[in-house]
Amino acid sequence: MNAFIAIVRRDLLLAARRKSEVFTALFFFMIVASLFPLGIGAETSLLRRIAPGVLWVAALLAAMLSLNRMFAADHQDGTLEQMALSPTPLALLVSGKVFAHWLTSGLPLVLLAPVLGLQFDLSPRSLGILMISLLLGTPLLSLIGAIGAALTLGVRGGGVLLSLLVLPLYIPALIFGAGAVEADMAGLGAGGHLSLLGALLALAAFFAPWAATAALRIALE
């Protein structure tokens, strides 16, 4: 457990030394979300209707931007080898890295989303549901993304390949995440969607570090 905390602290420290990377993803999120009203038109009722989907897709793409950096630096400078040789199980260390990735790329999106939601004229209640859905959904994105990042480590054209592998797997998160806000707006209640999202998160938290670890061991060989 100490090694888990150590790796989270190290990655947070590294992110703090390289703040620009965190902010690039956030700006990307803002810009993509702002493009939609410009492309579609500023009619309020339309914007309100598309807001959950647009914000979720933008968040999903922004979270993916930073994915290929999750293991790449560690792979290059040999840290990954040291992690694999640590007496602590590699899956636990990988979970630490995923958690740190979420703290630096997922959590900021959750905090920024309501501000962007205001651009789309969402009600305070919908903004709350949006935040909850992102809070449950972004860790899921980091977990599934870790598998893709590990698989494409050191592979030619890894960045594009990563999105090809990971985006189809993101679809359930998108459906339940955006669906939660839409269902609530339609007066159907968001509970079902949110609990399914939570169930997926629990499932991924259990299996994804294991799969990512297996993929990392292949990349190390």
Binding site: N2, A6, L13, D77, G78, T79, E81, S86, T88
Partner: peptide, 24 residues
Amino acid sequence: GHAPAIKDDLSALENLRTAAAVAG
């Protein structure tokens, strides 16, 4: 190994201590 497992953004002291902590 060949790759020294050194993080450029961390100081020598931080590198040494985090590497040890990660190794348990």
